[in-house]
Design a protein around this nucleic acid. Sequence first.
RNA 1: GCCCCGGUCGUCUAGCCAGGUCAGGAUGCCACCCUUUCAAGGUGGAGAUCAGGGGAUCGAAGCCCCUCCGGGGUACCA
Length: 488
Amino acid sequence: MSAEVRVRFAPSPTGQPHIGNIRTALFNWLFARHHGGKFIVRIEDTDQTRFVDGAIEAILDGLKWLNMDWDEGPEVGGPHAPYEQSNRLELYQRLSEQLLDQGNAYYCYCSREELERLRRSNRESGSYSAGCQCRRSGRAGAVGEPVTDDDRVIRFAMPESGITRVHDLIRGDVEWRNELQEDFVILKSDGFPTYHLAVVTDDHLMEISHVMRAEEWLPSTPRHLQLYQAFGFEPPEFAHLPMITGTDRAKLSKRHGATAIGEYEDQGFLPEALLNFMVLLGWSLDGSTEVVSLQQIIDNFTLDRITKSAAIFDQEKLLWMNGIYIRDLSAEGLANRMQEYIPRTLNAEERHYLRGIAPLVQERLKRLDESDDITAYFFGELAPDYDPAILVQKGMDAPGTLAALQAATDALNTTTPDGDFGHEKLESMLGEVGANLSLSRRQFFGLLRTAATGRTVSPPLFETMEVMGRDRVLARLQEASRKLQPTV
RNA sequence: GCCCCGGUCGUCUAGCCAGGUCAGGAUGCCACCCUUUCAAGGUGGAGAUCAGGGGAUCGAAGCCCCUCCGGGGUACCA
């Protein structure tokens, strides 16, 4: 094996990168980092009709978001530039000519109708006759003729017998009978190469040591191997990764809901959580450890621990893991991340306030996009409007609730001037008030919670009050009394 | 149709290559504990005759054969 490990992620800019694409990138990146090799990004934009504007940026953004840096490729350049196949056309055309000269390829003038008829009859007869008539017709291009022409393509002439075998690093030996392989197009009539020619050309030129790609590419491997042989290039190692599917076990596509990597960022998933979760789809450290640090992953990322079977992307488990990573953040770190999901701009004072709120909501957050809602009632002098009916606890009535509210307000006013408004003090003091009213903790604290936050669910009451501060809490208790007044 | 890959709790997986503990862990679900709500945490439970069937073996999830099911490919798409 050659000394340096060089792997690549070669996406087509045909849309938003989805989980499957990114997972493939991740495995390549991890493999490179594990071996101290190079990770290369190459843009496979050989289909002009499917090119989507902004797709390249979306792909690169996805890699950056997950902190996967590349050693060669767009933006960073490298010794094998350019890294966009559309800028390497002469290369493919020159190599096509070489194959033509060697007799390994030929011009094909068949129309789509002719080809369809040919394939249909092959299927019906059950036998396969390789290639179209062009292969034997002698209508080869004259020497010196341009390789591109509007109505002809160049096809690779597959051997008519023998076997092509690949030793896949994940699947073991896989072989195909050459006579069953079709003469595939290598250069389209518009002068662009097909995937097969381009990938072999560039993987060789860029000195790729291991081709790690999704399993859907396994059937085209014999074509690539034959190209390597025809060119006299030494083929790289191959490793076909298990696919990630939707819940129906079918290949990921638009109809599977949220699959684009950008959507996960929008929904408030932490990149480190998504990365940890994704690597577990097809790879495991030891079968029992689920939360694994990036360094641990890199240190232990070997091909022999990669699964063969496809995996369903389970959103529920991702959610769980995201919660783990959220709880692992420092208060400062969490506050900073939350801020990005709060639409309005916070001033310095509010940012400091949020820093205090963060620890309270930390273990209640599963996704960062809940940040705005879960902190909403902390801001503002008064709580967001709510139905006064929710102030009245089970087993209580409006007058009783009003009286309890008043007792709490009095206690807060008399016993906490501007000194201790800590949660422990609040708990002992208000606990006593509730007891004197012979209310259960559930009742008394429940109504105080609602009065203070406008909600029936919140972080622990006294810590919430402490963070909110005396003035805000008092204002809200008064507001609660006011709201309740008319109903009495 | 043809070619190729795969098949262990609902889901992600360990174990398979170098046969021999009640097939382990996690998630999700249920229950209980903790508890001022919601979470988080703790404990326990249900959940897989290892796709099915043969075979060699004292012994198979593991090795061999057949079948079934699922997926991928079968484009001048990648």
